[in-house]
């Protein structure tokens, strides 16, 4: 166990934790608009964390360059996709959930 493995493990499991929390959020939150929050943030960051952990484990090579490209693409595309989804729901006229409505 050298120091690099430990650091990459920390990144890996932090990312896994955030992805898991995002899933729980998607299940628990009451309406579509609030479900977008964990999908847009938790997943983006969890995924970036896991892939950065893999990059640290791998060191500098073609593989980590590919991982970097995936991370950058996802940091751009994932918020855009959630934003597009929210836009579709907004255009369709979906009303947001208010505090006090039933879940």
């Amino acid at each position: 166990m050298d120091i690099r493995t430990i650091v990459s493990g920390v990144f890996l499991f932090t990312g896994c934790f955030f992805m898991f929390v995002a899933s729980i959020g998607i299940i628990r939150f009451p309406d579509f608009y609030s479900r977008i929050h964990p999908a847009g943030k938790g997943d983006t960051m969890g995924q970036a964390m896991v892939l950065i952990g893999l990059m640290i484990y791998e060191g500098f090579s073609f593989v980590s360059l590919k991982l970097l490209i995936i991370v950058i693409f996802i940091l751009i595309a994932n918020p855009t996709a959630t934003h597009a989804l929210a836009n579709a729901a907004y255009v369709a006229g979906l009303k947001p959930w208010k505090k006090g409505d039933k879940r």
């Binding site: 990312g15 579509f32 479900r35 995924q47 996802i74 959630t82």
Partner: peptide, 13 residues
């Protein structure tokens, strides 16, 4: 669609 999108990102990882 949101759920499948999230499953897709998890699939990438």
């Amino acid at each position: 669609v949101l759920a499948v999108n999230v499953i897709g990102t998890k699939t990438v990882v």
